[in-house]
């Protein structure tokens, strides 16, 4: 087809199918150009490194802690069935799941409360939810170390109420506490967005149709806020599963989680192929959970 010159805004002409087609092509070209920077960035810094990780996971560690890229094998994946690795995997999964559940239980009532306030109160509360983000993540985790540590405020409280000197630091509880603290906002925000969107008259309608408050929640509010529940759960579960900083600072050496274990493989054990294999499995687990979860809540999303 011959190139059609698009008239500029100033030129008026009779419309033709060629002109229309050219205009549509130009529009889609423009869209591609707009997306170009992010495409380039993602390919360069996400897709390419990901391929490198996959390639390394099939390679072999040599005696000097380097990586031989010849001789492909599945040895790194075979190691996943070792009891110690399996324990770490399941512990990580369990703690991530627990974190997600606790976040959900805490965040839901708060998100509902938020969604039913006046806009002024709402925005103020949202700012409060965001405030922790203004401080460095690492600093906040160290703050928890002080709170939970020896002679910290937590111990003072347990002593004061007669429970004796209790210490939470370096335990699974401390890790979950830290994770919940870190990722709670990621649960609150999508839940708030989902609940805020629901027509509150639907709740009135359910009450008018003889539902008790609880039934109204179970039959109307919860099903309609499912998109928020799913989005929030993924946003909390995924980073909890791969969390490194919080378990490392609050969990100590007794509670090794996947994130720390992977770091150890790369930095201390210098076993890059095994670290790569672990990373890849972690990603696969996250992807599967996400897909399954989205499918389940599918139609409402």
């Amino acid at each position: 087809m011959t190139a059609v010159k698009l008239p500029s805004d100033a030129e008026a002409a009779v419309a033709t199918p060629e002109f229309e087609a050219a205009a549509i092509r130009q529009e889609s070209r423009r869209g591609f150009l707009l997306a170009m920077p992010s495409y380039a960035y993602l390919v360069l810094f996400f897709a390419v490194p990901l391929v490198i990780v996959v390639v390394y996971s099939f390679a072999t560690r040599n005696r000097f802690g380097g990586t031989d890229l010849s001789g492909w094998n599945l040895a790194s994946y075979a190691r996943l069935s070792e009891p110690i690795v399996r324990d770490i995997l399941f512990r990580s999964l369990w703690l991530a799941l627990l974190t997600t559940l606790i976040c959900l239980v805490i965040a839901y009532p708060f998100a509902y409360y938020l969604a039913t306030r006046t806009p002024v109160v709402r925005n103020l509360m949202l700012v409060f939810v965001m405030i922790p983000f203004w401080t460095n993540f690492l600093v906040r985790n160290y703050a928890w170390r002080v709170i939970l540590g020896n002679d910290g405020p937590f111990t003072d409280v347990t002593e004061a109420i007669g429970l004796g000197e209790r210490e939470l630091l370096f335990s699974k509880t401390a890790v979950v506490l830290g994770l919940v603290y870190s990722f709670l906002p990621f649960m609150i925000l999508p839940l708030y967005a989902a609940i805020e969107r629901i027509d509150k008259r639907l709740l009135e309608a359910s009450r008018d149709l003889y539902a008790s408050g609880l039934q109204s929640f179970r039959k109307v509010l919860l099903p309609l806020s499912m998109p928020g529940v799913i989005a929030g759960s993924i946003l909390v579960f995924v980073p909890s599963l791969g969390a490194y900083v919080t378990p490392d600072i609050l969990g100590g050496s007794k509670t090794t989680l996947l994130g720390s274990y992977i770091v150890t493989q790369f930095l201390t054990a210098r076993n890059w192929p095994f670290g790569a294999a672990l990373s890849f499995v972690l990603m696969a687990v996250m992807l599967t959970t996400t897909v399954v979860y989205f499918r389940k809540g599918g139609r409402t999303l």
Partner: peptide, 19 residues
């Protein structure tokens, strides 16, 4: 409360349960 009254309402814009 509304669930204890022998009346029912047809809401403005209906408020049907979308799910």
């Amino acid at each position: 409360p509304p669930n204890k009254r022998p009346v029912n309402t047809v809401f403005q814009n209906y408020a049907l349960f979308p799910h």
